[in-house]
Design a binder for these strands. Structure first.
Lengths: 209, 209
DNA sequence: TCTTGATACTTAACGTCGTTCATAATTGAA
DNA sequence: TTCAATTATGAACGACGTTAAGTATCAAGA
């Protein structure tokens, strides 16, 4: 019965169109400034149609967000990750920061906005939990292999995560000219990663700086 | 002429009432969820009255925000700050984090939201620039006295700031149960400060951890 | 004393938002 | 051809930020 299949495919097409249009509009203007009517205009459907595919604006934003998490995962995992756990952490940090700075509006929603959806985000296998697990594994290896001092793995993972998150969050919140007194220094991402790693390493001379 | 003075005082009273009510409502519900009508209700005036004291909701939020910055300054400067520059950085970080975690909704607006007002925030003497200057001075001293490796003072200040900002931002964005896989570890603030300091110190053995 | 003019405030409304309701169009199945 | 389900729509609702027009109050000048 290919007919119902075509119907489903068409329905899925509309859903995709909505998601894509919403994704672009959110990134361009920030999700708070994008109206359902604007999304509807972009795909040349009536606003009501969106509500047949998504329960609410929040649900639409959440769906876009989950797609973003998969893109983040892809960005961070692209190319072979270094086998050396410390090098791997460096690479993960750089990829994470690059994604956030390149997609500030999505990053803002993913990591800087409250939302009930985050209740589902920490389930094992969900993209956010998955990305965290990649970092955590690297930290555990770094401890096992004697690069990091032995410590609470989650605590250290969170120190690393919050460090790089802080850089991204500040840079995308304060436009260069809005930084107190001085714009964000070029190399802030690198400097933050190196300082934090340096503080965690057993043998800091390994840090390049 | 005491009459116009009384008039001015009364007007100032209303302005204060608006600011206070807005402050409390913003902290309780987040500024996006607080309507002008709700603020008006709280002070038992009509919504229009607010517009005689503040040009717009944005202007009101900005005014509340500037008051918050002064409170942050006060929180960070309360008690005599340690003379030892590294100890001082530690104390500043703790105070900063304590303020952010205790006032998440205000912190969110101060450091996690875009706004044109931030264009005025980096002027010398403005509270945000002032707070940054306190940190920067401590960093410079730490370098001059040989505790930190000599480096770009602003770069290092921003590494420290972004590190502690990342912790606060994550903790107030992800409610404990929403953290990927695990809740934020107790002691995350301390661990982050120590790791970053440790990474910047010439002689890391000074770090306690 | 009566008027004037400024000040502080309110009521009513506008346009836009997210959302919903009632309805129309399409189409496979009977 | 008729029926039922699916998918879309136009019009409307209530709440929002904001504004226009008007009222109440009262010190100051005639």
């Amino acid at each position: 019965m290919g007919i119902t299949e075509r119907r489903e495919r068409e329905k899925e097409d509309v859903r995709r169109k909505i998601l894509d249009a919403a994704h672009d509009l959110f990134e361009a203007h920030g999700y708070e400034n994008v109206t359902m009517r604007a999304v509807a205009d972009a795909i040349e459907y009536s606003p009501t149609t969106i509500y047949h595919h998504f329960a609410s604006k929040d649900a639409l934003v959440e769906a876009v967000c989950f797609a973003d998490f998969e893109q983040l995962s892809a960005t961070m995992n692209q190319g072979p990750l270094p086998a050396h756990p410390v090098e791997r952490i460096r690479a993960l940090g750089r990829g994470y920061a690059a994604f956030g700075i390149a997609n500030p509006n999505h990053y803002r929603f993913m990591f800087m906005t409250e939302g009930d959806w985050k209740n589902h985000a920490n389930q094992e296998g969900a993209p956010p939990a998955q990305s965290y697990a990649v970092l955590r594994d690297a930290v555990m290896e770094a401890m096992d292999q004697g690069f990091f001092r032995k410590d609470d793995v989650d605590l250290v993972s969170q120190v690393l995560w919050s460090g790089i998150h802080g850089v991204v969050a500040l840079v995308i919140t304060f436009k260069p000219r809005q930084f107190p007194q001085v714009p964000p220094r070029p190399g802030l991402v690198e400097a933050s990663i190196e300082a934090t790693l340096n503080g965690l390493l057993v043998d800091p001379k390994e840090a390049v700086r």
